[in-house]
Amino acid sequence: MRNALAIARKEFRGYFTSPIAYATIGLFALIFGLMFVAFLRFFMEQSLRAGAGGQMGMGGPQTVNVNQMLIRPLLLQASVVVLFVLPLLSMRTFAEEKRSGTMELLLTSPLRDWEIILGKFFGAAGLYALMLAVTMLSVVWLFIYGNPEWRQVLAGYLGLLLLGSSFLSLGMFISNLTQNQIVACFITFAVLLLLLLLNWVAEFAGPTMREVLTTLSITEHFDDFAKGVIDTRHLVYYASFIFFGLFLTSRSLDADRWRG
């Protein structure tokens, strides 16, 4: 475990020695901020209208829920942005080491494969967590001027963390298949989009197929988190997804070794 931590630390720092950490954190914060402002304006309009509706005697003032009308759609949109940003974090994990020959150092050091894989995973997930933490700066305003349900916000962020980690585990596997970061990035991106499209395909499918497809869909499981519900089913789904991604990575690492 100490070895895995050493690698995680190295990976995490590695992001900051190239512009990639600053670019992804900055861009993600910017996009998140813009979405936040857009949803906030919409939410304010809605609440004004709701208030006005009460004045005009249309069934009394309605309550608008900041959690349901602002935080939930915000986090759902954020989950799509995450899909675009995370391939940039996972692309270098193995492709870069293979290209520069440093994989030879890792594989001839007294490390077990899972220590290398977990180290890289935690390094990337750490940066992603930091990326999410920065966006909390936007959400904090809601707590200053309003009274949202903090448990829902936390559940939402937990969901985003799990969702992103699943993306990362898959991205690491793909990064291990090539020496070219750009190729790794694009393939990861394409595969993640396909996973996202499962939702749409499900719309046209028959009832049984729809059930199957939505259960498999990676974003479908996020919705409950955005609502503030932490359901064990979804936890199990993401945990299995991450495990599967890391397992594929370890298999392909082993396959490389035999192939030479």
Binding site: T17, S100, G101, T102, M103, L105, T108, S109, L111
Partner: peptide, 20 residues
């Protein structure tokens, strides 16, 4: 492998350095 690697130092053909 882990025991053997612990006792081995290896310089590959291209030194495995992290440029940054």
């Amino acid at each position: 492998p882990v025991e053997a690697k612990r006792r081995t130092g290896y310089l590959p053909e291209t030194p495995p350095l992290y440029p940054e």
